[in-house]
Amino acid sequence: MTPFSYARAGDAATATGLGMAEGAKYLGGGTNLVDLMRETIERPDRLVDVTGLSRMIAERDDGSLMIGAAVRNTAVAEHQAVRERYPVLARAILSGASGQIRNMATVGGNILQRTRCAYFYDDAARCNKRVPGAGCDAIDGFNRTHAILGASPACVATHPSDMCVALAALGAVVHLENTAGARTLPLVDLHRLPMGRPEVETLLEPGELITAIELPPLPWAVRSTYRKVRDRASYAFALVSVAAVLDRSGDGMVRDVRLALGGVAHKPWRAFAAEAALRGRPASEACFRAAAEAELADAAPLRDNGFKIELARRTIVAVLNELAGETA
């Protein structure tokens, strides 16, 4: 680790004041940042500990839920309103990492965790994300875990978060703040596709702090779930994951649907094409399959990850079947 100074911020104004400085980084639970600092992939010279920021989960009158950026992952998943009203979010969080890590990890840190591409971690490898312009050893290398959607010739890495896949499906809104002011951004717009600049991962401005996540009211999200497919039964990153929310009418039609995929792209992937193909159609396996095909039409396999296309297709169909089979 390179040397750094450490300061705690008790509120957003103090945090952004300290966080604006060149070389400063916010510190959540540290479960990703401390590891990357130890590998000297991240070399901040100031850490601003933001775990003292809002740890509130507040149910608002309009039915939305506000979750402070410093709330621990475990606390989100165990919250009664999340379990009952947004089960997809509780399930996504509980399928990620381990009990210990979920106790440490914050909402803000989970959203901004970096890729698990092995070449990104290996400083003997070429990686455009770590060293812009260096090249990418994953494209012709061992790329079983890499992206099938939205990748570029510069980077084929995936975003590793489970929680973000559920947030993408739920239409979550991210609340941001820096010394210039506050704004909001839909979660699905926060992360970028790699294009020519994989080192720029989000639309965050300098010193911008995540202060909260807002879940819009979505009464039909009571019928929602998350399925994660991975190499072992627990404590492994997703090969493919699916977050789904289904509103089926009494006559068996899809009134509305939200679908997002994990493990397939540089960002949590909201499946807009599949959603469009499903709205107003019968909630049947044939329609689910057609929707999955529509979403994956542009999927591009690399040397080792072609299996993800079929896996994503089957997982989408299985999850929608499961939700359609539940009685309202």
């Binding site: 540290g30 479960t31 401390v34 775990t51 440490m104």
Partner: peptide, 11 residues
């Protein structure tokens, strides 16, 4: 329960 290897002591 937490992982002490990913925790900075100052935190």
């Amino acid at each position: 329960r937490i992982l002490s290897c990913l925790a900075l002591a100052v935190q």
